[in-house]
């Protein structure tokens, strides 16, 4: 058996080695594929805070992913087309600067998460799942009817946004940006999980009454976690839109929310690197088996079934045999 920490280092090494190996062998598509996996991993790491640590299963995280995409798309579109975004009370123009877009995305996603969280966290279990799904679907249908920004057809951004000192159109440089963000998010998440807040969140999943008896406001704990979770997933949406230079209502789709959950289950619920492994496996399966058959999801279904039946701790649990804190 492998120690979980060793497995994490191996995955991290693989994540960095494969794109750079592809770069030296002039395989830009592989780099793009790994960038996609890294972005999905960021989204799922965000969801893992709510689902894996907090224990509330959000089936609507695509709402934040899509919002991140649209924030990026709208800001970049206005900047590219020299159309002012807001004229009154203050003049706001679009921007092509990635760092500015990320900050706005994080703020917007956190705000949306606060609204959704305040309403949906009044419920638990299947009701919470349905309310979060309903919010994401509302965002989906709103975006399909928002003709100013492409409606059902989506919005194309012809040139990737800028990052100071880097050529973001170069696949390896854009991958590096995404990978560094993933590393920062993982570092932040690792610290958060072991902090008094993270431990209290974990404890709140085990018993609401007990965590309140030691002085924690259960709702505040959950809402804070949901906001952080939504903000991280929102950031990944902005990166995804930049990767594709395109944003569309499909970024709000419930299938995507489901896929984020699948990443976490495959990798290991509540484990720091679980979503990373899940996203890597998903993206490569999609590429390898998807090239053979359109029905590649059947194979994914088998893997998911096997993991749920025989490996509750996901791939990490199977390989390391160490219990996660949720088990």
């Amino acid at each position: 058996m492998i120690k979980e920490s060793h497995l994490n280092i191996f995955v991290l090494g693989l994540l960095i080695f494969v794109p750079f190996f592809a770069y030296w062998n002039d395989q830009p598509f592989t780099i793009t594929l790994m960038t996609r996996a890294v972005i999905f991993a960021i989204a799922a790491v965000g969801l893992n805070l709510a689902l894996g640590i907090g224990g509330f299963i959000s089936f609507g995280h695509a709402a934040f992913f899509g919002l991140g995409g649209y924030v990026m798309g709208i800001l970049a579109w206005h900047s590219q087309n020299y159309v002012t975004l807001v004229e009154w009370p203050i003049l706001i123009e679009g921007t092509k600067s990635m760092p500015i877009i990320w900050i706005i995305t994080i703020a917007a996603s956190a705000f949306l998460a606060a609204i959704i969280g305040m309403i949906s966290l009044k419920t638990t279990g299947v009701y919470f799942i349905m309310i979060t799904l309903a919010f994401a679907q509302m965002m989906y249908y709103f975006s399909t009817s928002w003709s100013a920004y492409g409606g059902e057809d989506g919005l194309s951004i012809y040139v990737r946004n800028n990052f100071p000192g880097l050529n973001t159109l170069d696949p390896i440089q854009f991958f590096s940006i995404c990978c560094v963000i993933l590393l920062i998010v993982l570092f932040f998440m690792g610290r958060l999980i072991k902090s008094p807040f993270g431990l209290a969140l974990n404890a709140s999943r085990q018993s609401r009454q007990r965590i309140e008896a030691v002085g924690f406001d259960f709702h505040k704990l959950q809402l804070t976690a949901f906001i952080l979770s939504g903000a991280i997933t929102g950031l990944s949406g902005a990166l995804f839109a930049d990767l594709n230079r395109f944003v569309s209502p499909s970024m709000f789709s419930w299938q995507l929310s489901g896929e984020f959950i699948v990443f976490i289950i495959i990798g290991g619920v509540g484990r720091l690197f679980g979503p990373v492994i899940g996203a890597l496996i998903f993206v490569w399966l999609e590429h390898l088996i998807g090239g053979i058959s359109d029905y590649w999801h059947i194979f994914l279904g088998f893997i998911l079934l096997a993991i749920v039946l025989f490996g509750k701790g996901g791939i990490i649990g199977l390989l390391s045999r160490e219990d996660a804190q949720h088990e």
Binding site: A200, N202, A203, V214, E327
Partner: peptide, 10 residues
């Protein structure tokens, strides 16, 4: 599901 130390830190 938390360790002894984590129970106390939390």
């Amino acid at each position: 599901q938390l360790s002894v130390k984590e129970n106390l830190i939390a």
